[in-house]
Design a protein around this nucleic acid. Sequence first.
DNA 1: CGGTACATTGAGAAATTTCAAAGTTGGTGG
DNA 2: CCACCAACTTTGAAATTTCTCAATGTACCG
Lengths: 249, 249
Amino acid sequence: MSLQPFEFGYQTNIFSGPQSSSCTDCAFSRNNACSRFLLSDASPQQLRKTARFRAARQTVIHAGQPTDGVLVVCEGWAARFIQLRNGKRQLLSIVMPGDFVSALSVYEPDLNCSVQALTNVKFCALDRNMLRTQMQQNMALQSAWARLAAAEQKAADLHLVDLGQRTATERLAALFMRIIQRNEQRGTATEPSIQFPLKQQHIADLIGLTPVHVCRMISQLRARKVCDVREGWLTVWNRDELEQMAACR
Amino acid sequence: MSLQPFEFGYQTNIFSGPQSSSCTDCAFSRNNACSRFLLSDASPQQLRKTARFRAARQTVIHAGQPTDGVLVVCEGWAARFIQLRNGKRQLLSIVMPGDFVSALSVYEPDLNCSVQALTNVKFCALDRNMLRTQMQQNMALQSAWARLAAAEQKAADLHLVDLGQRTATERLAALFMRIIQRNEQRGTATEPSIQFPLKQQHIADLIGLTPVHVCRMISQLRARKVCDVREGWLTVWNRDELEQMAACR
DNA sequence: CGGTACATTGAGAAATTTCAAAGTTGGTGG
DNA sequence: CCACCAACTTTGAAATTTCTCAATGTACCG
């Protein structure tokens, strides 16, 4: 199992601890999808084929490029996206530590989108066949997987609602709330401030706006004392109001 | 197996033939997802729990309401959608004859969205456990299912790109091309005209515009001799140009 | 010090929505 | 067969949201 200590260009990694090479050492192994459902069970070391690193802003996978396994992000944030010919691109989802890049890739090797590292990222590829076999033998594992896949679909559906039906400010608020909720679900502390490594350009590509407009809307939220995004941190001053703005259904 | 000859309020059903009660008689059983992958195999009659009808504009399933099986549309068109409190709603996907309402519902009973009949619709519920057992025993079936699920995810991703990055006209063109391609994939004739039961309101809710603006954009396409949507039919006069307008990546 | 990536601001342009009214269509009942 | 009704489509004018272009500001790094 090759695991080079990849030389990061500069220190943007929001997870500053030493980079571990084994899943059992992983800082996130205790409260995350990948480990809770798939690695804690049997033979994690066999299951994991490779672990790799990618620096922030690098592309992890290019669309069309077949993956050599089921990708899981171990550290850092990544984003699935689709690149258009005219230079525009749409971020489809944010992948956080412990998340599958795509749950369905357990069955389908083709990702049909690209993946970019938002921060420095450590990720690994799990053996697709071994994973399927294990799921086949273990009902609990299978339904855990199903829950993850369903969560991905639900997230995509809500994202569609945002893009189709909601104003710039609402989309922004909804994005923030969703990140906060994901943090809470995984047990990460949700102080007034949480780490939020997305640049305004990422936010723009995610919620279908221009970075200029995102900037204006963030300024507005700041002026209204609701929240702020600044230098990799999201600070919420008035959670009730943020929730209300994000309220969807 | 109860199967009432549901009394349709009026004749909007785009499939005018006699309504059959058995899957083997189904007009769509030969070239569609549900039958090709799931019913042609073994004991289709056991698998199918119930068949029901719903008139156009009716809601088939309300969000939150648990489904009594894996829903498949047999005849007519339906749409998954999410209803917002403020009266807006987002159509998530169009479900055509032979499609699962949601492939993931094989594993997860909760649909987390509503389903509306766009035309008169016949649909049935397949036994979830029986389906899973069958998939477990039959690898081909499992990978067929995976292909369907992946196609759904891919469709959602492209939908996101449309809503986030593309202009009204482009979204419209993309929608038309996608419907045409689905028709072609299922072997339905793609004459210059195809049946297209979506109202402008549906189109608007699907691609995130106002019905008024949809109307204007359709008028524009009509004026430019590209295509027309009228009284339940989509007529394409200049497919090359339509494809170009829809070109995404 | 210079460079790169990122954030902010202003002004004008473009896309889309809103509101309101009028035109169509198809089904229903007299 | 006609009148009516409901659902749907079309059109116009004005308001609003968002984008584009362009310039300036800021932080960090080598």
